[in-house]
Design a protein around this nucleic acid. Structure first.
Length: 502
RNA sequence: GGCGUGUUCGUCUAGUGGCCCAGGACAUCGCCCUCUCAAGGCGAAGAUCACGGGUUCGAAUCCCGUACACGCUACCA
């Protein structure tokens, strides 16, 4: 390794959205790099042109940055090792391909898809791992194909690929940073295609070359690449390069333990963003799927910087983890409970504006969109909401008149005297000074005591009239925030609308 | 079929030869608090560690075998 500075990368294909599994891979790469005071790089692997999705590259980078994972180098940020998009580096792969051909580590192959498939089926029938039959391995490299046939094919302009030539005896052992020593059966290693007939390299070829040229010190990726390690190590050997350190992460699973997929739940990070989850909770949750601080630590809530400080690859587990949304929900609540009100205001302002555009409010818009009012709502509701947008949607009575009253609650809480009591208590509220939770509570208790009644006889009806529902924050504080005018209006309206038969 | 990896409460996990027939969190249930809903506090239930052998004074931990799950087996990445 030329450079000692730690460099890691996240190398997605621009085929769509950022998968939560990809987020975790990116996150671990980022955490490791930042922990080691190194660099985190984004590279786009678009060698399969048929699967490329417009704008996917942008969206991937944007979603990562939303999560707080900002690259030091990338197609957007630039850097010394560009280009950072593989389709812009084809001349590099051709050069290295030529070198392997010269060194007799690779050869041309003119086999058709049909021939390959036929050969594959034959081998499967025999219970063998399908391997290329080396039909086009030239004589001079130990095969049976005369050079003249190869030259003839080239002259005809037949499509070909370039395959690596796997030696008969190679080392099949390496040390994985998470799993420890891993061994392979060398007989299963195939003459992998390195360059496709469209002039693009395969993942195997391009990633080895780029990982070396971009000087990555650690490759942290999903375990689906583990069986390809022998081929990759061999390519490093062909080029005379020292390989980086490797760590293969276990996959995230569905509840039925199959690989995480759309059919069983949301897998795009965007889906969670859309639902209202914050980046704090998502990052915390994803990090803890298969990693823990160790040494009996029981901490569950980690901010990004804390994760950086404490992250270690050795603490990543080997087993696949089931993506369990209940834990994510709990984490989101923990973050909402402790987040600064100003931050929450920034998030709910657009939500509130959107609601105000749809519905008419009888409250002063200047007041209910002001910081002071919103801070009060937030402090009353933060222990009761599951998402930030619920400050607006779940407690809409702070912004809009209730449109209905919870039927069951009305049945339960209304007695024949309720409306008369409410009317009479309204007169108390009209002259109450100042209009605060404390004075409201005192007034209410002073009101019911002489009548030999419990406070509850008014508390529940007041709540229902003020909010439309039977649950919510402390009644007195709610009434204070709403203000006298709104409270009186809602009580008066409620009395008109609710009556008790019998 | 072949190769590779994995397996501890429902879920995420602690654990790395004795502290553990197993700790924490989420979820579930109950009590307290309480005007409601929450939050908080306390408690309960829940895995002898996939299964079977072996090594050892002693195994969740080391070894062997089996089962199951996941991945690779493409001119996908």
């Amino acid at each position: 390794m030329v450079a000692q500075r730690v460099r890691t990368r996240f190398a997605p294909s621009p085929t769509g959205y950022l998968h939560v599994g990809g987020l975790r891979t990116a996150l671990y790469n980022y955490l490791f790099a930042k922990k080691m005071k190194g660099d985190f790089i984004i590279r786009i692997e678009d060698t399969d042109q048929s699967r490329k999705v417009e704008d996917a590259q942008q969206n991937l980078i944007k979603t990562l940055e939303w999560a707080g994972i900002v690259a030091d180098e990338s197609p957007v940020h630039g850097g010394s090792f560009g280009p950072y998009v593989q389709s812009e580096r084809l001349h590099i792969y051709r050069e290295y391909c030529d070198r392997l051909l010269e060194d007799k580590h690779a050869y041309y192959c003119f086999s058709t898809s049909e021939e390959l498939e036929e050969n594959r089926q034959l081998q499967l029938k025999q219970g063998l791992q399908p391997k290329y039959n080396r039909k086009w391995l030239p004589e001079e490299m130990g095969g049976a194909m005369p050079s003249s046939n190869i030259r003839k094919k080239m002259a005809e302009g037949s499509p070909y690929v370039v395959r690596m030539k796997v030696p008969d005896y190679i080392s099949v052992w390496f040390e994985d940073m998470i799993r420890g020593p891993v061994e392979f059966d060398s007989s299963t290693i195939d003459d992998q295609v390195l360059m496709k007939s469209d002039g693009f390299p395969t993942y195997h070829f391009a990633s080895v070359i780029d990982d070396h040229l971009m000087e990555f010190t650690h490759i942290i990726r999903g375990e689906e690449w583990l069986p390809s390690m022998p081929k990759h190590l061999l390519l490093y050997e062909f080029f005379g390069w020292e390989p980086p350190k490797f760590a293969h992460l276990p996959l995230l699973l569905n509840p039925d333990r199959s690989k995480l997929s759309k059919r069983q739940g949301d897998v795009a990070v965007e889906d969670y963003i859309r639902k209202g989850y914050s980046c704090d909770a998502i990052v915390n949750f994803v990090a803890m799927l298969g990693w823990n601080e160790g040494e009996g630590t029981e901490q569950e809530v980690y901010a990004l910087q804390e994760l950086i400080d404490k992250f270690s690859l050795e603490r990543v587990g080997k087993a696949g983890a089931v993506f369990n949304v209940e834990k994510l929900n709990w984490l989101e609540k923990q973050y909402i409970k402790h987040r600064p009100a100003a931050d929450i205001i920034n998030t709910i302002r657009p939500v509130l504006a959107s609601e105000l555009a749809k519905r008419e409010t009888l409250l002063s818009v200047d007041v209910i969109t002001g910081d002071h009012y919103l801070e009060q709502v937030i402090e009353l509701m933060r222990e009761r909401v599951g998402f930030e947008h619920e400050f607006v949607t779940f407690s809409s009575y702070f912004f809009f008149e209730p449109e209905s009253y919870e039927e069951e609650a009305v049945k339960k809480r209304w007695i024949p005297e309720t409306n008369d009591l409410l009317r009479e208590f309204t007169a108390e509220l009209e002259v109450l000074e100042p209009f605060t939770a404390e004075t409201i509570e005192s007034a209410l208790k002073a009101f019911v005591a002489p009548k030999g009644l419990k406070a509850a006889v008014l508390i529940h009806p007041l709540r229902i009239l003020a909010s439309g529902v039977s649950f919510g924050p402390s009644l007195y504080h709610m009434l204070e925030v709403l203000g006298r005018e709104a409270v009186l209006r809602r009580i008066t309206k409620g009395i008109e609308q609710i009556s008790v038969a019998e």
